[in-house]
Design a protein around this nucleic acid. Sequence first.
DNA 1: GTATTCTATCTGGTATACAAGATTCGCCGA
DNA 2: TCGGCGAATCTTGTATACCAGATAGAATAC
Lengths: 226, 226
Amino acid sequence: MQPASSNVIENRIIQAVLSEEISPGERLGEKDLGEIFGVSRTLVREAMMRLSSRGIVAVSPRRGWFVIEPTVEEARETIEARRSVEIGLLMTQKNISAEMIKQLEAHVLEQQRAIDENDLGRRSYLLGHFHVHLAAALGNSILANILEELTTRIVLIATLYQSKADAQQSCDNHRRLVSALRKNKVKDAVKIMDAHLTHLDKALSIRKKMKPRSADQLRGKASFVP
Amino acid sequence: MQPASSNVIENRIIQAVLSEEISPGERLGEKDLGEIFGVSRTLVREAMMRLSSRGIVAVSPRRGWFVIEPTVEEARETIEARRSVEIGLLMTQKNISAEMIKQLEAHVLEQQRAIDENDLGRRSYLLGHFHVHLAAALGNSILANILEELTTRIVLIATLYQSKADAQQSCDNHRRLVSALRKNKVKDAVKIMDAHLTHLDKALSIRKKMKPRSADQLRGKASFVP
DNA sequence: GTATTCTATCTGGTATACAAGATTCGCCGA
DNA sequence: TCGGCGAATCTTGTATACCAGATAGAATAC
């Protein structure tokens, strides 16, 4: 394994979370990750520090780093935060270029393909990252960053609480959203987004407990290796 | 100087930025900070990693860490991001308790006092943190965190571009905002917020160049020491 | 006097060393 | 068989060592 920078580690872990390769509550040992990425604990630690700042992992003193397991309360707050940000994003957007609409439509098609091909990791990744693309398309990279943070947490929440928001429905919502944007019907877009998140929020009531995987299993995941 | 954890360092630096004790472009050397806080470079580095993840500082390889100097484009994006978040926040809020209204009013009074007493650092700090309190009052700590990040950057932007949004006007806007919230006039609140940010955005055109202070001067600032 | 090159020094980048708390597991006793 | 106790081990916490790139300043050439 050739060495990787701490940035690479950080991004790889976010990607792994979005692809559901890593589950909430999973332990991420510094030593293990160092071996996987071929670097010393120092770089792993840097990546963890940034990830913890983004609310993806948290450290338990002298026990290890763990992927966060949001409580129901935190889950609701995250969904509400996303609702605020996304609705604000839609309401304050001025004009969206035809080029961007096309990109978003292409992204939705990719999502559909991942669903059809039953590519679970890619499916989860694309469905989550659609909203990041949306913010970027509306011309604000800062909001895109914020949304990446929030959607990553949402994926963890969805995994943890087994929200049954099935992929096809999410994809359909995205399609309708882009369609509304193409017609410049902002109000419709807001409604679709609002309903989408309300659905997610409702699905949260069904709790499901997960058994955390051990770090050893993680090492076995070939795809986790960059 | 007794040792401090990396968390303390991080918070202290954010506070220093909010209080305008630290200017954009200022160099923050690992060695210097380590001496100031009485710790090794390791802990300073951890704090810097998290601050960079929050977009407050950036590293120039083998040269040092610097407080970010947003370009005009980034400044506009930050203001737009804040507009989205704050408007979304106001629009999706359900009910705000009388208790919270009181807290916000008390905060506005504190702001006024800082203005009257000409306490510049405290003034800057309170005016910026009002929005963080607002998000917290509306019951979402995640949005509060996001807003802390954004307002910190806004302070840097205001310093850099010498936006003449004078303190008294900001405070008045805050007072009007809380008043609208008390009367449950959400639309008015949104309007006030929107106008406030538009004003900030307009003021951005007047560019002002700053000369960065050296780290030695920073060391001299007794108040920077925890 | 000015431009240039070379070197001493400073800075961050990364790995490693060592300390101390947490965990595990075996041993012992009841 | 079950529960408690202790040492061995594992994990993060923090400091330090060493490297390489960047910088500044002096010496040199013109």
